[in-house]
Simulated assay, not measured.
Amino acid sequence: MSESATSAMAAGGVAAPAGHAPDRFFKYWLIAPAIFLLLLVGLFPLIYSLIVSFQNITMMEVDTSFAGFINYAQLFKDARLWQALLHTALITIIALPLELVLGLLMAQLFLERMPGRQIFVSLLVLPTVISPIVAGATWRLMFDNRYGPINQIIGWFAGEPMTILWTVNPNLVYPSIFICEVWQWTPFMFLILLAALSNVDKSLTEAAEIDGAGYWRTFFKIVLPSIWPVMAIAILIRGLDLVRIFDVIWALTQGGPGTMTETISIYTYVQGFQQFETSYTAAIAFLVIAMLTVIVVWAIRRMGLAK
């Protein structure tokens, strides 16, 4: 036995067969197909869209030559685009706190043991598992002036038939969106916050009560700091979902009346798949990606999630 093989075996290793050098990169070859597939599915569309954004591809012509920053310059002149961003921000700013507060209140309610607790929690989570497009279509039927039950119930209380155009009246269209969105996604916040509250160290809250701390003082000084990391993640996830909201609004209003409820996702869909402004749509997509990257990085640092 050679001296090198003897030393290797003495060190607890296994000597390579004579004439065959060990392949140090074998483990990388094993995971290479999976990495390649992920890059193909995720990275290739991104790079291709970036290339298309510097071209001039529309329904009428396919000009694949370099067009410069003409599409990106058009973004700053597009008033409808910035209105869509404003609508998206409005929905996010209002719906997210509502879902957070209602979810927290529901989690506090079901924190203590109660008869049928598991059944009630299961029923409350059901709206979350429904497809958003189905939820939007269902609420559109419920808001329907002629056949929907909501106007009929209001009419019973009012003592006369009520004609309320929920998805057409400019004063009611946003409340109808908030009702549908909060109904579907508050259980998501509730479930996450319930799990977080269940893991709070009860010895700390009991010690605070013994020391004479009230409910709100205990909540803000002990409970909230304990659940904040989980709450921050839930806020971030729902915030990103609301920024890209499409299904519910498309099923309810299709961005109407006019373009009053048109979000950035709906506007991008209209430009890309109805007006076939392919290159301009790619430029919009990269504008949204850049804005979301800045917002997410800021939110992660602000929430203290980055260590």
Rank of each mutant, 00 (worst) to 15 (best):
4 S>T: 13
7 S>P: 04
14 V>L: 13
19 G>S: 12
24 R>E: 09
27 K>Q: 09
37 L>Q: 08
43 L>C: 05
43 L>I: 04
47 I>A: 15
48 Y>L: 09
53 S>K: 06
53 S>M: 03
55 Q>G: 10
63 D>R: 11
69 F>D: 04
69 F>P: 00
69 F>N: 07
85 L>K: 02
86 L>T: 07
90 L>I: 11
92 T>C: 01
94 I>H: 05
94 I>D: 05
105 L>M: 10
107 A>P: 00
107 A>N: 01
110 F>W: 04
112 E>F: 09
130 I>D: 07
132 P>E: 01
133 I>S: 11
133 I>E: 01
140 R>E: 03
144 D>W: 04
144 D>I: 01
147 Y>I: 11
147 Y>N: 08
149 P>H: 07
150 I>S: 06
150 I>Y: 11
158 A>T: 05
160 E>P: 00
164 I>K: 08
165 L>Y: 13
170 P>R: 05
171 N>H: 11
172 L>R: 02
173 V>L: 01
177 I>V: 11
181 E>C: 00
182 V>M: 00
183 W>V: 04
184 Q>E: 10
189 M>Y: 01
191 L>H: 01
196 A>I: 06
202 K>D: 05
203 S>G: 15
205 T>I: 12
207 A>D: 14
215 Y>K: 14
216 W>F: 14
220 F>L: 12
220 F>E: 06
222 I>C: 09
224 L>G: 02
225 P>H: 09
227 I>D: 11
230 V>S: 15
233 I>W: 07
236 L>V: 09
237 I>W: 01
237 I>C: 02
242 L>K: 03
243 V>G: 00
246 F>Q: 02
248 V>S: 00
251 A>S: 10
260 M>R: 14
264 I>Q: 09
266 I>Y: 06
277 E>Y: 11
279 S>P: 14
280 Y>E: 14
280 Y>P: 15
284 I>H: 11
287 L>T: 12
293 T>P: 00
299 A>P: 07
300 I>M: 15
301 R>G: 14
302 R>S: 14
304 G>H: 06
307 K>T: 11
